[in-house]
């Protein structure tokens, strides 16, 4: 069918932001291809989601089932495989998220579909799928094309799409019978756990001083902490620092950690992986100190210092202390 299918992602009763990225992307693709934009909602008690999505999509397909209440790749895969086989969409878009990573590859195998993951750009032209995606941790861009296949699936990186445009009138909401006959045997969700519960909420601070892999050794972190204190800010970090257990997860800025909106974000020894810089888009000012002039963090920094953090950080702390004392 001449449709672009978009999988709505939701968690704990809320549509996730990625869903609107997918809708915006899907709309662009549908317009180019002269296709309809179809949102797919799998869940339980989804009336609110459907009404929201119908503002943007030409059609909303809903499958309600207890097994779909929370994301679980097994029932999701079973329902989507059937839906895609029946409707033969031009393309199915899924978020490149923890859900999408768990779902898209096995779904593609079941459907014998061509799959491209973590896409920055996607085009579908005469049934041919091409995509631009990062490789080598974002330091290279790869243009890919999918070989001829019955089905095509793309997972889309979060945060690169414009805001979706609402339709003049609400799209049609179509409730479908759940094809799930019995409970699936293999995989069960037991609970959600908030890893930062009871810990400091760094996103509440107006000034965040953040440390990355470049700090080299956990005992050096006090250098950065001293600077954070001098600025009256809070100490945060990037993923490698948490992976090495040098700071707790609650201090991590990134997609899997905290998204922050301080007036000042000072990144020290942080290279600037996509997962990190996405989470600081809301910062008023970004300042980066890094010895590698090619570090991607400088692409998002308002001010940069290319230099050795072990020289720059103590000097900066001293200048700040002196400026404060001078007042």
């Amino acid at each position: 069918m001449n449709e672009i299918l978009v999988l709505a992602e939701h968690r704990r009763g809320e549509l996730r932001e990625i869903t609107f990225d997918l809708i915006a992307r899907g709309r662009q693709l549908a317009e180019k291809a002269g296709a309809e934009l179809v949102a797919v909602v799998l869940g339980r008690g989804t009336d609110g989601f459907c009404a929201t999505l119908a503002q943007y999509a030409d059609r909303v397909l809903v499958v309600e089932d207890d097994a779909l209440r929370d994301f679980n790749s097994e029932p999701y895969q079973a329902v989507l495989a059937q839906l895609i086989s029946e409707r033969q969409p031009l393309l199915t878009l899924i978020g490149h998220t923890a859900c999408g990573l768990d779902l898209a590859p096995s779904l593609a195998v079941q459907l014998d579909a061509a799959l491209v993951t973590d896409c920055l750009e996607v085009e579908i032209d005469g049934g041919k799928l091409t995509a631009v995606r990062p490789a080598y941790g974002g330091r290279v861009r790869a243009s890919l094309q999918a070989r001829e296949a019955t089905h095509r699936i793309a997972t889309i990186q979060a945060g690169n799409a414009p805001s979706p445009r609402a339709r003049d009138s609400a799209g049609e909401i179509v409730k479908l019978q759940s094809p799930l006959a019995e409970e699936m045997a293999y995989k069960k969700l037991l609970e959600y756990v908030d890893t930062a519960a009871g810990e400091i909420d760094i996103s509440q601070s107006e000034i965040i001083v953040s440390v990355g892999r470049g700090i080299g050794d956990p005992k050096n972190i006090t250098l950065v902490e001293d600077l954070a204190n001098a600025l009256g800010g809070v100490l945060a970090c990037s993923r490698p620092v948490v992976d090495k257990k040098w700071l707790p997860k609650a201090r991590q800025v990134g997609i899997s950690g905290k998204t922050v909106h301080p007036k000042l974000y000072l990144a020290i020894g942080i290279s600037g992986a996509f997962q990190h810089v996405t989470a600081i888009k809301g910062a008023g000012m970004v300042v980066a100190i890094n010895k590698d002039p090619k570090a991607p963090i400088f692409r998002v920094a308002d001010y940069g210092i290319v230099g050795d953090l072990f020289a720059v950080v103590p000097t900066l702390k001293e200048k700040i202390a002196r400026a404060k004392a001078g007042k």
Partner: peptide
């Protein structure tokens, strides 16, 4: 035996947003 192929690699623009002091 692949379902996708790389057409081309490129380097992302190195454009700097702000001032290097």
């Amino acid at each position: 035996g692949s379902k996708t192929e790389i057409e081309k690699l490129s380097l992302p623009p190195a454009a700097q947003k702000g001032d290097i002091l």
